[in-house]
Amino acid sequence: MIAAGCDVGSLTTKVAITRDGSIISHHIVETGFKPDLAAKNAMDGALSKANLSIDDVGYCVSTGDGGKNVSFAGKYVSQLPCLSKGSYFFIPSVRTVVDVGGNATRAISVGKEGRVLSYRLNDKCAAGGGRFFDVLAEALELKLDDLGPLSLQSKSPLEIASQCTVFAESEVISLLNDGKDIVDIIAGVNQSIASRIASLVRNVGVKEDVVMTGGVAKNIGVIKSLEGWLGVGIKTVPADPQIVGAVGASLLAEKELQES
């Protein structure tokens, strides 16, 4: 039984293919301005890695902001159950999922078998979301992946006063112009974003194990800061943290197949 999950996010589109509860392949592409095309490209990439064709896929569940019009999907499911299910698949002891993606931050309280108990969502304001790291990396002329490791070198993170991403960008540039150390700036930004994420998580309730997913889970600096704010350890999945929603969608697709 082969199933697929297609997660069309604001910045990236992910497809995961599973067979009988195990991941066979996955593929990530940039969403760009054509979500339908991104979904197709992500699916083609994942299929070719698994030497499969679309006809081999019994059922596909789509999810994500742009996932409602995926032609090859049998059903659309919101990100929450997909993330919850996907996190539970990787780490069955999960009770709280913190998903920080490109345009939204979610804190999900997870119950038995990866069910969603309650959640908090911020998709209204870029503060505390992944987008700020793109803005920051661009302002500092650094690669996105370098931000986390660099921040760990900081001994005295600077305080970033602005909450708004637009204002914080200017603040970062003036700190840089004032000759402040770049690692202290990055560490300061991590602290500030982690503090926004932490307040969302506290709102839903902090229950261990806490699992972080989404692109920002690749930033070790944010994870460390968030651990500091929440006072608990944070786990990450033994796979690319960006594919957790797509994996969850694929597992839900398998369930559809079983029930049909």
């Binding site: 345009n103 209204k124 870029a126 987008r131 700020f132 991403t165």
Partner: peptide
């Protein structure tokens, strides 16, 4: 539709 300047920019 977005209130946030960053999201509105997108």
């Amino acid at each position: 539709t977005n209130m946030c300047s960053i999201y509105a920019q997108t």
